[in-house]
């Protein structure tokens, strides 16, 4: 039962902190910092389902976020839909598309799959650049009118923030729930040895399709919420390849395959990034430092931070998931 896991309560406490902290004194700058961390956590924990649990490296993960943003913004702006409904619809639509694409590309293994995900990301971006109803390369803007139904821009942004935190909590709870379920066990078996898993009775084709599709849902919802907050979207901010890769770096840093690792890695990376950006000398070298960090982790600590903790304290495996 998930309620018995300490991690579940930690997730709730973390989410409560995210909600409460900026609320004191209506601290907008803090809220803006925290929302970025929250998005990072959403992306890395859903990506973890593919990379950490199933062993399939998705290099194009950000495509779910970007598409969710586009669909969400389109539905709220051009169609006047309510944000929550639009965000959910975006999630469903993108998951469905992921299922369709997944059936094709999940036949590929290892690096071929990774490359295919890059191809899908780039193809979607190229498509949106040519797609008229979505503004082609200029993108779409949202007028302030859209915030009216929420009681004005300020209120809308706070409510939007809470929704994002909700999605973050859901992402973490989802990863935990899958990890302790039979479905998760099947995914781990696929990760360890896909052919053996199949011989043991795991329907690998279906399992992979499901997890790929599921891993798309919450990022798409988050995309819809975030771009609503930003009020605009274009194919370059929506489908930035480096964001996809940052997701992977975060996961490796924190420890792929664990729920805590995904969250920690996201948090650490965002902290590092904000630190680098504010230091005038170092901001140019942001990429260099991130790259160096990734190299060190890959060469010396491929299990990330949590992997290192597991090696120090094997008993921690049961507690920190």
């Amino acid at each position: 039962m998930i309620l018995r896991r300490p991690s579940f309560w930690l997730i709730l406490i973390l989410s409560a902190a995210f909600v409460y902290l900026p609320l004191r004194g209506q601290n907008v700058p803090l809220r803006e910092d925290l929302v970025l961390v929250a998005v990072a956590i959403i992306l890395s924990s859903n990506l973890n389902l593919m990379i950490g649990y199933t062993g399939y490296v998705n290099f194009g993960h950000i495509v779910f976020y970007g598409l969710g943003g586009y669909i969400g913004l389109y539905l709220t702006t051009a169609r006047g839909w309510n944000l929550v409904v639009a965000a959910l619809a975006a999630g469903v639509a993108v998951s469905f598309l992921a299922l369709l694409f997944g059936v094709g590309i999940l036949r590929l293994r290892g690096a071929y799959f990774a490359l295919a995900t890059i191809g899908v990301l780039q193809a979607v971006q190229a498509f949106v650049i040519n797609f008229d109803p979505w503004g082609r390369s200029t993108g779409m803007y949202m007028s302030f009118e859209a915030y009216k139904s929420w009681g004005g821009a300020m209120r809308a942004l706070w409510l939007d923030y809470y929704l994002v935190i909700g999605v973050m909590a859901l992402s973490l709870i989802l990863s935990l729930a899958i990890k302790i379920s039979k479905f998760g066990l099947g995914l781990f078996a696929i990760r360890e040895n896909e052919d053996a898993a199949s011989v043991l009775g795991v329907n690998t084709t279906v399992y992979k399709a499901i997890v790929y599709s599921v891993s798309a849902f919450l990022p798409a919802v988050a995309g819809a919420l975030m771009f609503f907050k930003n009020g605009m979207i274009d194919p370059f901010v929506a489908f930035e390849f480096s964001l996809s890769l940052e997701g992977i770096v975060m996961l490796m840093l924190g420890g792929q395959g664990t729920v805590t690792g995904a969250a920690l890695g996201a948090g650490m990376y965002e902290w590092l990034r904000s630190f680098l950006l504010t230091s005038p000398k170092l901001s140019d070298f942001q990429l260099v430092i991130a790259g160096g960090l990734l190299l060190v982790v890959v060469l010396f600590a491929p299990g990330g931070l949590i992997g290192w903790v597991y090696r120090l304290l094997p008993r921690a495996r049961g507690v920190i998931e």
Binding site: I51, V57, G110, A111, A114, L245, I248, M252, D284, F285, Q286, L287, V288, I289, A290, G291, G292, L293, L294, L295, V298, L299, P302
Partner: peptide, 24 residues
């Protein structure tokens, strides 16, 4: 010897370093 993800990431890390220096 390790899974392919590792070499993908290590080469990508070097890529980031080079591009970072180049941009600077």
């Amino acid at each position: 010897g390790r899974p392919m993800l590792m070499s993908l990431l290590s080469t990508f890390a070097v890529n980031m370093i080079i591009i970072g220096i180049g941009t600077a």
